[in-house]
Amino acid sequence: MSEAKEPFYTDVDDENDFAHEHEVSDRVPLRHGEAMTAAEVERFLLAKPANLVSIIGETLSGKTTLMAAVYDRFLKGPFADFTFAGSHTIVGLERRSHHSRVESGYSTPETERTSLSDGLLYYHFALVPTDNPKRRLNLFLSDRAGESYQMARSNTDLVKALPEMRRSGRSVILLDGSKVANKIERSGAMQNVRQLMQAFLDNYGFDSGSRIQVVTTKKDLLDKADDAAILAGRLSDFRNKLESDFASRLGELCFAEIAARDPSGGYPVGAGVDELLRTWMQSDAMPAPAVRPPLPLPSSEMDRLLFRSRLEEWP
């Protein structure tokens, strides 16, 4: 396996994708199956094309649940006009799904907080469109602790330590529906998303090539809010303002609502996520090997990224 030096990730270790140092020496290490580091994803991309989507949002906004909901749906069958063809991160996906299952002993579905020390992790899905069974597409969804985004919003020097938005073909920013549903938290949650976008735009996190989806999570809670009509108005004002202030500086800006896991069961698992998944699988969610500052790429690496073939037919 060629050990490419990672172009823009500084927080990577030298792990490869295989488990090692098992105590029994006559055993052969196999793929670890855990969530992948940025370095591992880069290595994957040298061999095969994939779509990269970064999932961004503050603590408890629903990033991990969103990714776990995609997996949950494929466990039960085809989803969003795609069928499951494999995953390099089954163990990682299973760990994240654990707290929503009965065996975990919890009585309401929970997602474990993602820890800061995990850094940036990616989950992998190989998917096949139901209407084109010969085509096989790879998707990586990023996940990291929401604190990192909160910190970058407050101290914009940290934006450059978050390479995923620059690398991915699409970014999803989550607006926490449980806060929006709450009169006290509502305004703060919206302003935090706005400030985050501004910080990313002003510090080369986003640029005129970025495709951004602002997604309100936990829509089950919006429905249940006692001032649902007022809430809807505030949300729509908020979106219009983002649109008028930022859309011209971005490649694309759109909005969606999801209920990745409604604990009351009113919405099916992954409600609204199917629409998102469809957009993530479009060819414009290919990683952006963009020449956007600040990217100190050695020229050989740059060539490699620029000349990588577009979506290939399988096999």
């Binding site: 929503s100 299952r101 009965v102 919890y106 069961g265």
Partner: peptide
Amino acid sequence: DPLSIIELQE
């Protein structure tokens, strides 16, 4: 297979 908590509640 393991039930999800939501399925159990149903």
